[in-house]
Structures are given as structure tokens and as C-alpha cells.
Amino acid sequence: MRKLAFVLLLALNTVLLNSCKEEALTYNLTITPHYHVDGDELMLDTIIYQNAAGNPYSVNKLRYYLSNFRFVKADNSVVTADGDAHFIDAREGTILNLPKVPVGSFKELRFNFGIPQSQNVYGNLPNTSYNTGMVWPEQMGGGYHFMKFEGYFNSNQGVNGYAIHVGNNECLADVSISTPFDISEDGSMTIGFNLNEIMTGPNTFDMDSSNYTMGIMPAMLEISANINNAFTLEQTP
């Protein structure tokens, strides 16, 4: 009898210890996007930037999703830090919150720009007004817009608007940033997002020849291929 009690206590102890350990294994990480254009701070609504094609432009709207955050260890193993899709509005200064990221030392940060196929189905994300505002019609492949990037530019016919929209599973971008970082407590990191890189490297986007991309697959694929270079890890936790 006493033996049994002892064993039970021991078992309880391990359970408790384990649960403690499990909690210690994850931390809360906030990620603040820092928007800039080749190093200049982003100021919305004014035509003060110039892209690689030479179009002077403004940024009036930037809404997008980042998802599927993964951390890469020195031995190249990849751990998922957060599987959710996060809606971000640059105007609102959205800050991401990943509640349970793993502890450790990592050599690379990975995430998707857009929403992975399994989650990219209308109704899958909570029906907030943000998410319903990003719906990509069923008739055009369904799911959500990955990005709405809009503003004005000085074209050869005066000021004009542009709307760079990307969606569709084929256009999901995989971003990797090879900057080492450690997670050892609750913390925050800042990722730089250079908006000029949306429109170049490798594919230069000239607003004068096209100011609209929604549903135009070659244009959307080009933009999606540019995205990987747009991000940097500016401040590690």
C-alpha cells in the first residue's frame, strides 16, 4: 500500500515537473514590422518614393498576411513557432503576437507571405471585418487576398492610382531571413519590410506599363517572387 502511494506520488511529481518544463519551453514573442523604402521611414499618403522602375509613388494602403512562422536550428531542423495566419495593416501599425514560440538558438527565421493552402479557404479565418475585407472570390480561386498594396504614382499622363494585389495558392511566398537569434524569455523582434523590394529583385514592376495585378497570374507570380528579399531581421529578441 505504502509502495503504491509512493509510486503514485512519484508519478504525480513527474507530471507536475513535465508540465512545468513544457511551460518553460515556450515564450511569448511579439513581432513589429518596420516599414521603410530603401531605408527611408514610411510616410503614408504622399508621393515621395521612387521604385526601381523610376516611378515616383505613394503608399496609401498596405494590408497583408504573414503566417506559418518557423525557426531553423543550427542542425537545419525546423520547428514551427506559430501556425496561424496574421492579418496586418500598416496604417494601423499592427503588431503580431506569437504566444508560444519555442526556446532555443536559431540561425534563420522563416515565414510565409500570404496564407498556406490548407488555411486559405473563405470562412477559415475568424470573420472579422479585416478578414472579410480580404476575401478573394470563389470564382477566382477562393480564399483571401495575400496583399493589397495601393497608392498613387506620377505616370507619364499625370497622377494615377496603382493597386498591387496578390492572392491564389500558387502565389504564396516563402520568406527566409538568415539572421541568428535566441529565444530565452518573452521578447520582441522587429522585422524590416522594404516596400521597394515588392517591385524589384528579381522582377522590376513598372507602374507605367501596368498599375493593376489582381487575377493577372504572371504579374502576381512576379511580385510574389520579389517578396523574399523584402524582409530583414532588424532587432532580435
Binding site: E150, Y152, G158, V159, N160, G161, Y162, A163, S210, N211, Y212, M214, I216
Partner: peptide
């Protein structure tokens, strides 16, 4: 006009 939505004049 200057402020017309790009959707209205898309390629």
C-alpha cells in the same frame, strides 16, 4: 481623373 480607382482603368 487623378483619383480614379485603378480598378476602373485596369489593363
Amino acid at each position: 481623373s487623378m483619383t480614379i480607382d485603378p480598378i476602373m482603368t485596369k489593363p
